[in-house]
Design a protein around this nucleic acid. Structure first.
Length: 214
DNA sequence: AACTTGATCAACCGCTGACGG
DNA sequence: TCCGTCAGCGGTTGATCAAGT
């Protein structure tokens, strides 16, 4: 990795371009700048803000982490159902899937799929018929009733398909955390507990940026 | 307690399509 | 039409942490 600067014309030739994890200071600069000037052309934004980052990096950081409407924390059972259903329909169109999960990013959904679901499916061996099959069943449950599924029910649905028959084994891997059945559960805000173990979080930054004036 | 292994996720890379000159 | 720039997307990597031995 890191053999050369980013492609696609969005990279700068600047040898001083910073890479790697973002610092709190960088986050603050980016948040403040966007709060004052809005999102714009990312390359010029990065320069104007005084960040030694590529526009691409700034955009990614903003979209995946700093945006105020980014919802962090565990993927709920309901969200998982949606992900599986849409993935069955569209495949790896993560951004498209993410549009149906308010507050979730394509990166997050992609990671979730790869680390949880795909791994499980690979274990089961086959995939193709699985998706449509589970999708149909999920559709039945999700659209024909107003009832919101809880974790147990979600797993039962998966278990009812031949290929997801061991899905109960996922239970210990999938941490549904504070899933709260609600007609609007997709919009449930992130709880404090969900991010408390990180040294600093976006929650720390947003109030700070407000106090920074502007 | 020390080491190994596996899981998670932020961030990067490379590609593609849209758009404007 | 061609070319350069940019945003956006999907795949991949690597750091970190937790669990297991």
């Amino acid at each position: 990795m890191e053999k050369r600067e980013s492609s696609g014309g969005s990279g700068s030739g600047d040898p001083e371009v910073r890479k790697g994890p973002w610092t709190m200071e960088e986050d603050l600069i980016l948040i403040n700048y966007i709060a004052n000037h809005g999102e714009g052309v990312w390359n010029s934004l990065a320069k104007s803000a005084g960040l030694k980052r590529t526009g691409k990096s700034c955009r990614l950081r903003w979209l995946n982490y700093l945006r105020p409407d980014v919802r962090r924390g565990n993927i709920t059972a309901e969200e998982q159902l949606i992900i599986m259903e849409l993935h069955a329909k569209w495949g790896n169109r993560w951004s498209k899937i993410a549009k149906h999960l308010p507050g979730r990013t394509d990166n997050e959904i992609k990671n979730f799929w790869r680390t949880k679901i795909q791994k499980y499916i690979i274990k089961q061996g086959e995939t193709t018929t699985v998706r449509s099959q589970s999708s149909e069943i999920i559709n039945d449950h999700a659209t024909s009733t107003s009832h919101v599924l809880n974790t147990q029910e979600t797993m039962e649905i998966y278990s009812s398909t031949t290929s997801y028959q061991h899905a109960n084994n996922m239970d210990h891997q999938l941490n549904y955390g504070n899933y709260v059945p609600s007609s609007d559960s997709m919009m449930m805000p992130l709880s404090v507990e969900q991010s408390e173990e990180i040294g600093w979080t976006v929650d720390d930054i947003w109030p700070m940026h407000l106090f920074n004036g502007n």
